[in-house]
């Protein structure tokens, strides 16, 4: 029973970080239908930003989120305006290759600056944990889960209650119709990409105290982000959150009750099953 609860709890906590990556991608994918293969690399840039803020300025990784969000937002807006915008109507494989190219540029530039060494960011609480009824809970993961919840709630409010949020959602639902309604879809795309980038960067910032950094780390998270996004439903913030937690739990349970080698297969099988039987995702409206 302890084994079950322990893996459930750690699955949920790690799912929180996954969710943040997934939400970032769902914004981009939802609004632009661009398969962004650079998402993990963007997250990696966020990690290095946090690392620098910590080692050079002594800013705590969790506090650095305040800086990370605006900086990464601008970075994302820049990427969208200069590169992504030009391929919005191109074939999907051209979009994929463009983002793969951008990812290569990001990871290799970082490698030239920082070398390919692993960087580990050790805070006073990096390996801290507390126990409730025999189940240990990682302190940094618990904090980052809390921050994820706050950010998700704020984003949800922004998308639901503000004019701009509604414009973004309208663009996500039907680009042409949104344009006909007088929404500046180009601007919405820039904002959506900026938000997606900021969220990926934030996820990077939140995971650094418990994880490690090296320039090629992005690819680990890119595919996971897609699985989460499709699972939850395109453009659905709640869906991506749910997707992240489900994937977290699936991995955790898979490792315990099947084997850690097979846990990722489980994730992809869930992904394909969802695509087959509920292609719109758990929370999405039908889009097929």
């Amino acid at each position: 029973m302890t084994v079950f609860l322990q893996s459930l709890i750690s699955g949920i906590l790690i799912g929180g970080v996954y969710a943040l990556i997934g939400i970032g991608l769902t914004m981009i994918f939802g609004v632009m239908r661009v398969i962004n293969f650079a998402h993990g690399d963007i997250m990696m840039v966020g990690m290095y930003l946090t690392y620098n803020l910590f080692t050079l300025c002594g800013i705590d990784p969790f506090a650095s989120v305040v800086i990370c969000i605006p900086v990464m937002f601008l970075f994302g807006g820049f990427l969208q305006k200069i590169f992504i915008n030009r391929v919005l109507n191109a074939l999907p494989q051209n979009q994929i290759l463009l983002t793969i190219g951008l990812g290569l540029i990001m990871s290799n530039t970082i490698m030239l600056i920082y070398t390919s060494d692993y960087k580990i960011l050790t805070t006073s609480y990096s390996s801290g944990s507390f126990r409730i009824a025999g189940i240990s809970i990682s302190e940094p993961l618990a904090i980052s889960f809390l921050i994820t919840v706050i950010i998700t709630a704020a984003l949800y409010w922004f998308l639901m209650k503000t004019d701009m949020g509604q414009a973004i959602r309208a663009t996500a639902q039907d680009r042409e119709a949104a344009q006909l309604m007088g929404i500046n879809v180009k601007r919405m795309s820039v904002i959506a990409f900026g938000l997606g980038t900021a969220l990926a960067g934030t996820a990077g910032a939140l995971i650094t105290p418990t994880y490690y950094i090296f320039p090629q780390i992005g690819s680990t998270f890119t595919l996971k982000a897609f699985v989460i996004t499709v699972l939850g439903g395109m453009g659905s913030v709640i869906g991506a959150t749910l997707g992240g937690v489900i994937i977290g739990i699936a991995e955790s349970m898979g490792a315990v009750y099947i084997s850690s080698g097979w846990k990722e297969v489980l994730v992809y099988v869930i992904f394909l099953l969802v695509l087959l039987f509920k292609p719109s995702g758990l929370m999405g409206k039908s889009r097929m």
Partner: peptide
């Protein structure tokens, strides 16, 4: 083939990854 556009792309990646992980395991 039940899927289209980006969904097809992602499904093809997932299928290939399952085969890679199977070969690994």
């Amino acid at each position: 083939f039940r899927l289209r556009g980006p969904y097809f792309v992602l499904a093809s990646i997932a299928a290939a990854e399952i085969i890679r992980l199977t070969a690994l395991n």
